[in-house]
Simulated scan of single mutants.
Amino acid sequence: MPKNRYYAGPVSDNFDGLRFFSPGQPLPDRGLREVWAWQRSGQRAKWPREVPVAPTVPPARSEAPRLTMVGHASVLIQVAGLNLLTDPVWSQRASPLSFAGPKRVTAPGIAFDALPEIDAVLLSHNHYDHLDLATLRRLHRAHAPLMVMPLGTDATVRRAIRGARVAVGDWHDRIALGEHVSVALTPANHWSSRGLGDRRMALWCGHWLDTPAGQIWFAGDTGYGDGAIFRDIRARHGTPDVALIPIGAYAPRWFMRNQHVGPDEAVQIFRDVEARQALGIHWGTFQLTDEPREEPVQLLAEALGEAGIAAERFRAFAPGDVHAEG
């Protein structure tokens, strides 16, 4: 019998005793034959080796929401006097290996040494392009932030970082970050794995921030499915002032559809949660899939036009970009 190496807990509506799943949604699992068929298709676009970035130096603190793009799914969120990082990756590769695997083509939009004091890190799942232990070790040494993550993800962090401050939750659990600031873990249609034989043994999630200055939602990695989880997020939490929604790593669609949305589905998520403003993440830093680097930006513009949504309400967030409210 396989054994879950990350989590031991009771059967629930998203855990069958061995693996996590998204109730009522298609499984994103792919077998070796499908992986091989994708890899030998020869459809991968050629990305540039490097794209110039003008790094930003953020302020020490901000009461009004201020978001700065680091790259991929790494965003500095400054709000209500707190400094938060989503899925921080400052490493050169999104990989368990330092010499192989997807290499970043954009430098971080904030130099690591230019970071303000970090109060908390919000982790969505344990894939290498989201949970980077080298970066988490650096953050722990420099800032000792609280690290918030879904069930089972903590096993990887605790083993690697002695003394890490860790808070763990299931979907819909709420964790306090400050006197008037909390984060709720939201569902996503995705999966997890750090190696072979551990698929879906740790949970994945998004993060909904409730603050006196507004609501910010980091969607994490997700497929669209039937859209039910996004409509439920809207019903449970209201409408976000700012939503961080992935727009890249979607091609080929036959392989990626159940795990990563494309720009058209990202726009549908934007509409489902009725966000006031959205920022497109998860594109242009690491080449994980087949689409050309700039295609997510182009397709996002087309999808917004077809939906009759003003382009400024949902823009692709590039390293060094800043979105400031108030």
Rank of each mutant, 00 (worst) to 15 (best):
M1E: 08
M1P: 05
N4K: 06
G9R: 14
P10M: 11
D13G: 04
D16M: 10
G17V: 10
G17C: 09
L18T: 05
F20L: 02
F21G: 14
S22P: 02
P23N: 13
G24F: 05
P26H: 06
P28D: 12
G42P: 05
A45F: 02
A45I: 06
W47M: 07
P48A: 10
R49S: 15
R49D: 15
V57H: 05
V57M: 06
P58A: 06
A60C: 05
S62T: 00
A64T: 11
A64I: 04
H72V: 07
A73V: 13
S91V: 03
R93P: 13
A94V: 05
S95W: 10
F99H: 02
A100E: 04
P102F: 00
P102A: 01
K103G: 12
V105C: 11
V105T: 09
A111Y: 02
D113S: 06
E117F: 03
I118Q: 03
L122C: 09
S124M: 13
H125V: 11
H127Y: 02
D129W: 14
D129F: 15
D132Y: 00
L133I: 15
L133W: 03
A134L: 09
A134M: 05
L136K: 01
R137H: 09
R138T: 07
L139D: 06
A142C: 07
P145S: 12
L146S: 04
L151F: 07
G152Q: 06
T153M: 14
A155S: 10
R158P: 02
A164L: 08
A164F: 03
R165H: 12
W171A: 08
R174W: 03
A176F: 04
G178N: 02
H190S: 08
S192Q: 00
D198K: 00
M201K: 12
W204Y: 04
H207A: 15
L209H: 01
P212V: 01
A219V: 15
G220N: 03
G220Q: 06
T222A: 10
G223W: 03
G227D: 05
R231I: 14
D232M: 12
I233P: 00
A235M: 05
R236V: 00
R236P: 12
H237A: 09
P240K: 02
D241A: 15
D241I: 02
V242P: 08
W254V: 14
W254F: 12
R257N: 10
N258G: 07
Q259Y: 04
D264M: 01
A266I: 12
V267I: 07
I269A: 09
F270A: 12
F270M: 00
D272I: 02
D272A: 08
R276H: 13
I281Q: 09
H282Q: 15
G284N: 13
T285R: 14
F286E: 03
F286G: 07
L288A: 09
P296V: 01
V297H: 08
A303I: 11
A307K: 03
A310D: 13
A311C: 00
E312K: 07
R313G: 13
F317Q: 05
A318R: 14
A318S: 14
G320P: 10
H323D: 04
